Amino acid sequence: MARWDPDGRTRLQQAALALYSERGYESTTVAQIAERAGLTERTFFRHFADKREVLFFGSDVMQQQLTDAVASAPESASPLEAATAGIEAAAGLLEERGPQVRTRQAVVAASPELQERELTKLAGLASALAETLRGRGVAGPAAALTAEMALAVFKIAVEQWAQGDSKATLVDVIHESLAELTAVTSQQVRR
């Protein structure tokens, strides 16, 4: 096996995703991932802390793209408009890897352990988003509420987009989800 390979991380990610899809996350070992990638277990652990993190590597890039887009939104943008700019930027990253993202979503949906890790990732994104909104002058509770709403829209939109067969972009699905949220919140609550 190769001692060093410049695209080792990518090969490990592709091997893991394929094996998780074929065998299930719980039934796949690090040794199997490394073997499929043509690398050693030691190389695997140089890139990832554990087999779960293969699916979540790059979350920091997504968070940075999201917060940068929120911070650079026009000053006239409402908190929700700024947050939407952030989730649209994050959507761009996912759309670039459409087939892999769809497979990843199915793998995560099939594993309670991975679902928990996904929720942790989304909570981190919401926290960073809220902090960025506060930096734009949005009050604490309003920043947190806006961030949580935006990430809920993002989560639902990604799930729908990943399962869908339509040609709609993820940004289109985000806009549809935001329209649904607006419709729901504009209805009077009946008692």
Rank of each mutant, 00 (worst) to 15 (best):
residue 104 R to M: 00
residue 104 R to S: 04
residue 104 R to Y: 00
residue 105 Q to C: 04
residue 105 Q to Y: 07
residue 105 Q to P: 00
residue 105 Q to D: 05
residue 105 Q to N: 03
residue 105 Q to H: 09
residue 106 A to M: 02
residue 106 A to H: 03
residue 106 A to E: 08
residue 106 A to N: 03
residue 106 A to W: 00
residue 107 V to W: 03
residue 107 V to M: 01
residue 107 V to Y: 01
residue 107 V to F: 00
residue 107 V to S: 01
residue 107 V to I: 03
residue 108 V to N: 02
residue 108 V to E: 03
residue 108 V to T: 11
residue 108 V to G: 05
residue 109 A to V: 02
residue 109 A to C: 01
residue 109 A to D: 13
residue 109 A to F: 01
residue 109 A to E: 10
residue 109 A to Q: 14
residue 109 A to H: 02
residue 109 A to W: 00
residue 109 A to I: 02
residue 110 A to W: 03
residue 110 A to F: 04
residue 110 A to G: 13
residue 110 A to P: 05
residue 111 S to V: 09
residue 111 S to F: 06
residue 111 S to R: 04
residue 111 S to G: 14
residue 111 S to H: 13
residue 111 S to E: 13
residue 112 P to W: 09
residue 112 P to L: 08
residue 112 P to A: 10
residue 113 E to L: 14
residue 113 E to M: 02
residue 114 L to T: 09
residue 114 L to F: 07
residue 114 L to S: 08
residue 114 L to P: 05
residue 115 Q to D: 09
residue 115 Q to C: 05
residue 116 E to W: 01
residue 116 E to P: 00
residue 116 E to I: 01
residue 116 E to N: 05
residue 117 R to V: 06
residue 117 R to H: 14
residue 117 R to F: 07
residue 117 R to G: 01
residue 117 R to T: 15
residue 118 E to Y: 12
residue 118 E to S: 13
residue 118 E to N: 11
residue 118 E to I: 00
residue 118 E to V: 01
residue 118 E to W: 03
residue 118 E to M: 12
residue 118 E to P: 00
residue 119 L to D: 08
residue 119 L to I: 06
residue 119 L to H: 12
residue 120 T to V: 10
residue 120 T to D: 08
residue 120 T to H: 08
residue 120 T to Q: 13
residue 120 T to M: 08
residue 120 T to F: 02
residue 121 K to H: 10
residue 121 K to R: 13
residue 121 K to Y: 08
residue 121 K to P: 00
residue 121 K to I: 13
residue 122 L to E: 06
residue 122 L to Q: 12
residue 122 L to S: 01
residue 122 L to A: 09
residue 122 L to Y: 08
residue 122 L to P: 00
residue 122 L to I: 07
residue 123 A to P: 04
residue 123 A to T: 10
residue 123 A to E: 12
residue 123 A to G: 11
residue 123 A to D: 14
residue 123 A to W: 02
residue 123 A to K: 12
residue 123 A to I: 05
residue 123 A to N: 14
residue 123 A to F: 06
residue 124 G to N: 12
residue 124 G to C: 14
residue 124 G to L: 11
residue 125 L to P: 03
residue 125 L to C: 06
residue 125 L to A: 14
residue 125 L to V: 05
residue 126 A to Q: 09
residue 126 A to M: 06
residue 126 A to Y: 03
residue 126 A to R: 12
residue 126 A to N: 03
residue 127 S to H: 11
residue 127 S to W: 09
residue 128 A to V: 07
residue 128 A to R: 13
residue 128 A to D: 13
residue 128 A to K: 06
residue 128 A to P: 07
residue 129 L to Q: 11
residue 129 L to K: 03
residue 129 L to E: 04
residue 129 L to C: 13
residue 129 L to F: 04
residue 130 A to G: 15
residue 130 A to M: 06
residue 130 A to T: 07
residue 130 A to V: 10
residue 130 A to N: 08
residue 131 E to Y: 05
residue 131 E to P: 04
residue 131 E to K: 15
residue 131 E to F: 06
residue 131 E to R: 15
residue 132 T to M: 08
residue 132 T to K: 04
residue 132 T to G: 01
residue 132 T to Q: 10
residue 132 T to H: 11
residue 132 T to F: 08
residue 132 T to E: 07
residue 132 T to L: 06
residue 133 L to V: 15
residue 133 L to C: 14
residue 133 L to P: 14
residue 133 L to D: 09
residue 133 L to Q: 13
residue 133 L to A: 12
residue 133 L to E: 13
residue 134 R to N: 02
residue 134 R to G: 11
residue 134 R to I: 05
residue 134 R to M: 12
residue 134 R to A: 11
residue 134 R to E: 14
residue 134 R to P: 02
residue 134 R to K: 07
residue 134 R to V: 11
